[in-house]
């Protein structure tokens, strides 16, 4: 799982009981590396929201973390339904979450927006019926 500062974490769909598991681990890793609090908080939020998205919508996925001298690179890939209209999905408040997800306080249509806000570079691609890929870069 670990090679230098490269980590890959699996995330399973529908496992709401595990939401936050990866982001809490990542936060500890980044703290150990000596990343400043303000920066690692952004990384933790971006990964938390990504985890919740995989759990809420995808079958399964992975969250990869790579720390270089200048950047924190986060790569999120899932196998799932994909996103039809990325522009719409990025709008604050837009969500396709069902009632069960919303009742827990998820699915407020803020996740992707939060991720983008925490990123210095944010790229998203998606293929309907296949899955979604997020590339998040945060400057150290």
């Amino acid at each position: 799982m670990t090679q230098g500062h490269n980590y890959v974490f699996p995330v399973e769909g529908e496992r709401f009981d595990e939401a936050g598991k990866v982001s809490v681990q990542v936060k500890q890793i980044l703290k150990k590396i000596g990343i400043p609090d303000a920066v690692l908080r952004r990384a933790a939020i971006a990964i938390y929201e990504s985890e919740v998205n995989i759990i809420s919508y995808a079958i399964h996925g992975t969250a990869s973390l790579q720390v270089t001298d200048d950047h924190i690179l986060i790569d999120i890939q899932d196998v799932g339904p994909g996103i039809t209209d990325i522009e719409q999905a990025m709008e604050q408040g837009y969500s396709t979450a069902n009632d069960h997800i919303r009742a827990m306080g998820f699915g407020a249509g803020m996740g992707l927006f939060n991720i983008k806000n925490c990123s210095d570079i944010f790229e998203m691609s998606s293929e309907e019926g296949k899955g979604t890929h997020l590339k998040i870069t945060i400057n150290r």
């Binding site: 939020i45 919740v52 827990m104 306080g105 407020a108 803020m110 939060n114 806000n117």
Partner: peptide, 9 residues
């Protein structure tokens, strides 16, 4: 707040 993303942000 009761919306987790809102609290996260």
């Amino acid at each position: 707040g009761d919306l987790l993303s809102n609290v996260m942000a």
